[in-house]
Simulated scan of single mutants.
Amino acid sequence: MTNPSANAQIALDDVAVLMPAYNGQADVNLTLASFDESALVHVLIIDDGSTPPIVAPALPNLRIEVLRMPENGGIERALQTGIDALAQRGFRYAARIDAGDRSVPQRLAKQRAFMESHPHVAGLGMWTQVVTRAGEPLFMLMPPAAPDVIRRQRFLRSCLAHPSMMLRVDAVRAVGNYRADYRSAEDLDLFVRLMERYDCANLPELGLYYELNEGGISATKRRRQITSTMRLQLRYFNVANPCDWLGLAKNFLHLVTPYRALQRVKRVLLAPRANH
């Protein structure tokens, strides 16, 4: 991999952080303050009808624009609007993150360098440390790096951590952008469509601290998320792929198992990796 600090000022001119936000000004401030890059960081916040409206914090080395939606329409519409806005502004790459999460230093430069040298990769994630609201480590998500493994296991496990992703804006728009057909599973829907025409991969190193928020989509809209995921599994089901069968069974189990019980199991199984 090339040295991400070389030509850093040029390297990030076509990258923009894309962050949807609904209320939670303090979380927005915390997340944006975590970016530490050698070049100016461009940020587009999609304010999804917050009251009061989200205000761009004054932070060094960040150029922040807030695009306000007329009313709260959900993350799917906010992300779709964000991708179109980045295309109109001439950005090639969208670096996803959610309010409350924190970036690892030089994440953007590393991801962009990889994608420049791998032009068929349309989406690139990184390993993710899951933490509590207080920042205490819970467990590490270390998904596979290789595109063929990700494609095979796409319904068996969470192979791509959405807030850690860098996406090619033109590729996302070429496959139909984010959409609301699979509510609360808009990320998996996009990734599956991307992988029909391009590759998705992971950088096998820490890139994101993901806050496990009991009020987040995965907790409060869990049944909708699982149902949407199962609909996607059935639509793209490959009978010759054992991982598709296992993934369907796994999500059925998730559907009938309480959320807190699943989180306890995850912490027991993955906690030994937390300090890796």
Rank of each mutant, 00 (worst) to 15 (best):
A87T: 08
Q88C: 10
Y93W: 15
A94F: 02
R96G: 08
D98H: 10
D98M: 08
A99N: 11
R102Y: 01
S103D: 12
S103F: 03
S103V: 05
V104Y: 03
K110L: 12
R112M: 07
R112L: 11
R112E: 08
M115W: 00
S117E: 15
S117Y: 04
S117V: 06
H118D: 11
V121N: 02
V121I: 15
V121Q: 03
G123R: 01
G125L: 08
G125W: 01
G125F: 06
M126P: 00
M126N: 05
W127D: 02
W127H: 09
T128R: 07
Q129L: 15
Q129N: 11
V131E: 10
T132K: 10
G135L: 08
E136Y: 08
P137V: 13
L138G: 07
L138D: 02
F139C: 04
M140I: 04
L141N: 03
M142L: 11
A146P: 00
P147A: 05
D148F: 09
V149M: 04
I150A: 00
R151I: 02
R152K: 13
R152F: 14
Q153M: 14
F155V: 02
F155L: 04
L156G: 03
S158T: 13
C159E: 01
L160Q: 01
A161P: 01
H162N: 09
P163Q: 10
P163K: 03
M166H: 06
L167W: 10
L167P: 03
L167F: 14
V169S: 02
V169N: 03
D170Q: 14
V172G: 02
V172P: 05
V172M: 12
V172D: 03
R173W: 03
V175P: 02
N177F: 09
N177K: 09
R179Y: 11
R179G: 12
D181W: 04
D181T: 13
R183C: 08
S184C: 14
L188R: 11
F191Y: 15
L194W: 01
E196V: 13
R197Q: 15
Y198V: 04
L203D: 00
L203K: 02
L203A: 07
G207S: 07
L208D: 01
L208F: 06
